[in-house]
Design a protein around this nucleic acid. Sequence first.
DNA 1: ACGATCGTTCGGCGCGCGCCGAACGGTTCC
DNA 2: GGAACCGTTCGGCGCGCGCCGAACGATCGT
Lengths: 234, 234
Amino acid sequence: MTDPATPRLAALTGLIADETRAACLLALLDGRAWTAGELARHAGVAASTLSEHLGKLVAGGLLTEERQGRHRYVRLADARVAQLVEDLTAYVRPGGAAVRAPRTLRESSASGAMARGRTCYDHLAGHLGITITRAMTERGLLRQDAGFALTDEGIGWFGELGIGLERTGRRPLARACLDWTERRPHLAGVAGAALCRHALDAGWCVRIGTERAVKVTPAGALALDAHLGIVAPR
Amino acid sequence: MTDPATPRLAALTGLIADETRAACLLALLDGRAWTAGELARHAGVAASTLSEHLGKLVAGGLLTEERQGRHRYVRLADARVAQLVEDLTAYVRPGGAAVRAPRTLRESSASGAMARGRTCYDHLAGHLGITITRAMTERGLLRQDAGFALTDEGIGWFGELGIGLERTGRRPLARACLDWTERRPHLAGVAGAALCRHALDAGWCVRIGTERAVKVTPAGALALDAHLGIVAPR
DNA sequence: ACGATCGTTCGGCGCGCGCCGAACGGTTCC
DNA sequence: GGAACCGTTCGGCGCGCGCCGAACGATCGT
């Protein structure tokens, strides 16, 4: 009669349907591991309260824990959970219907705001992520008009850069992740994660402090210009 | 400090985090309008209880209501809500190796028809939807290997059939929806909805009873063979 | 050794929520 | 008109959940 998935659907959403737990999941969207104490301070509740919340989130499979000494590190279980939280968050962000007029690549990269980039779980977001995504689209490496997928040229582009694209499980090679500051899609999925990792490994950008913000290095600006035609702000 | 979307995320998931409301949303995934009484019987609760649930779901923007006489018809607000429920359901389903075996003959024939073809909100799912999606992929109309998008040939294919693809808002032209019986992706999005509507309008398939199951007509079999090379889909 | 820090467990408190049945207003059909 | 039906509102009930503080164990630093 009723769908057998009903109780699981209710249980899953019930796991997120608490402001404290929701705050934890959103904080963990940066893809890094947080300690229980950090999350407790971040959410503004007692440590004992948050301990119980973490227990539920781990038991529910949304988080994985990693004990080191007297610390309990916790992170999102996998990319699927990150995508789930992203999807829910994208739905709930205000003004979803507003689509801004597309700016030219020159405008978007000349402002200097590209320095304001950040990671979203395991891929690049913020102005940096959007600029890269839009440059890839304009160069025919990515197509967004009929879905969201890499073109053959795009796959070749990753190969030329020596970035491996291993398809693990069911995770899509390319998928759109909606940025909540710019409200525009940026590249996520296996390709987005690989590109982000390469950008950090190759020194194209570096993390700023303990936040999820990243900054483009001079070498990174050269690389982005060479490979994507993105003119670095000077 | 904490993400401003936190309370909205908790509120949204809290709206779904109830077995009765979750059962309603899953039932409404067929894209049709249900009366309050039907949903009450389906969920197995008193009419008064369900009335309050509907009030919350409507107030929360997940459902829209339509009063006709002494009936209160309710349906999913839009495709975004349908996608949200689909995403959550897709997350919660794949773990289930426990697929209940139908017991009675009536159940088995009903589930068989559902597996063969059915609608998922506004697009085709089940074996029929997957077969069509696979055929489109093999013919180069759709690509799944690097994301999920129509190819230029695919866009032309819709044009040749006289199926209009209007880009409304930000709904993607093509997107994958995971089928829960076959556990394979099938075409959703604007293109999926347009194809489903065309299939019903042109008599390629007809609805069976009041469920969401659909059956391919002889004329539909000919059309699927002619346009996609599908031989006798069952 | 010591204190400091981190996390967990446990009792207890209070609020909120889902549920029902009874009563009521509105609509349809005879 | 009356009867049957659909949906809503309103008490009232009970359970569950989130929260805290206090106590405890475990770990790290000195």
